[in-house]
């Protein structure tokens, strides 16, 4: 079925369409665009002692000349990149398995892979302390077989990394599996028929069709990781802190909304970069 050309649409119906679209657009403008503009304006016009608000980059200069803030930005980028790398390493084989395997075991694996989606992160955080924390289940099991205790990742930068990887597995696997839908069984079988080894098969047949979904994973999870709050808050070290907890603390405890908005703007700039990456990946896919 083909879509009717636009010119056929009667004027009154066009108005109805616009009205229908207006609700989400207005909501988006009100709840997203307006806060961004308002926040940006506040961050760029620091309040002076006399109450005036001239345009100035003072807040940003303060941020980038403060080693404490920079360390927080650094740990955020470090956590995001490490988590992303681990996610790809874990989830690509998992997605390949789920795409090609059949039978009962695959169903169980899929259930396990989707399970984290239904666990709230605050529950996950406390379970993490129980399992991987000091004298947690991992330690008890190791101790039972006479092995030394692990050095717990709890309250170190690796705590949030492990938690975030586990939390993000379902979304990553879902996106990758849907991307693998583009790989037809015929193409795989044809390559096998001419004697392609598994690695060659992956490299020449599967990977080229997966790139878009990998790009989507990179941008989606990076956005999610940048915005993460609960896991770094509960599992991470006191210092340096990730941008999420840092912003919240600046806003609420230090009662400094201007600096919190500055931190939010800087975080936003990084997220926009990944957002653009996503848009390009999707646009390129449409073009094909």
């Amino acid at each position: 079925m083909t879509a009717r050309p636009v010119s056929w649409v009667q004027p009154s119906r066009r108005l109805t369409g616009l009205l229908l679209v207006a609700v989400p657009v207005l909501l988006f403008a009100w709840m997203t665009i307006w806060p961004i503009l308002s926040g940006l304006t506040t961050a760029l016009t620091p309040q002076q002692a006399d109450g005036s608000r001239p345009l100035s980059f003072d807040n940003f200069v303060t941020f980038f000349s403060d080693p404490y803030s920079l360390a927080n930005l650094g740990i955020t980028l470090w956590t995001c990149l490490i988590t992303l790398g681990l996610l790809l390493v874990i989830c690509i084989p998992l997605a390949l398995y789920l795409r090609f395997a059949q039978g009962r075991l695959a169903t169980y694996v899929q259930t396990m892979a989707m399970f984290p989606m239904f666990v709230p992160s605050i529950i996950l955080a406390f379970a993490f302390i129980r399992v991987l924390g000091p004298n947690g289940m991992a330690d008890l099991l190791l101790n039972a077989v006479g092995l030394p205790k692990i050095r717990s990742p709890y309250l170190t930068p690796w705590g949030p990394v492990i938690g975030l990887v586990w939390d993000n597995i379902p979304l990553t696997v879902l996106i990758l599996v849907s991307g693998l839908g583009a790989v037809s069984n015929q193409a795989v079988e044809a390559a096998r028929d001419v004697g392609a080894k598994p690695l060659a098969l992956f490299w020449h047949i599967i990977l080229p069709r997966m790139w878009t979904s990998v790009a989507v994973v990179v941008s989606f999870t990076m956005l999610g990781l940048f915005a993460s709050f609960t896991l770094p808050y509960v599992l991470g070290p006191a210092s340096p802190e990730m941008m999420g907890p840092f912003m919240q603390r600046t806003f609420r405890d230090l009662r400094n909304p201007e600096m919190a908005l500055t931190q939010a703007t800087i975080t936003m700039v990084f997220c926009i970069a990944f957002g653009l990456f996503y848009v390009r990946a999707v646009a390129r896919n449409r073009g094909n």
């Binding site: 406390f126 000091p134 004298n135 717990s152 309250l155 070290p237």
Partner: peptide, 22 residues
């Protein structure tokens, strides 16, 4: 301090560490 200077992120987590005998 614990782990050469770690700080929990709340009252409950401290209680949990004491409960786990850490």
């Amino acid at each position: 301090l614990f782990d050469n200077g770690a700080y929990t992120s709340g009252n409950t987590q401290s209680v949990q560490l004491l409960g786990q005998s850490a």
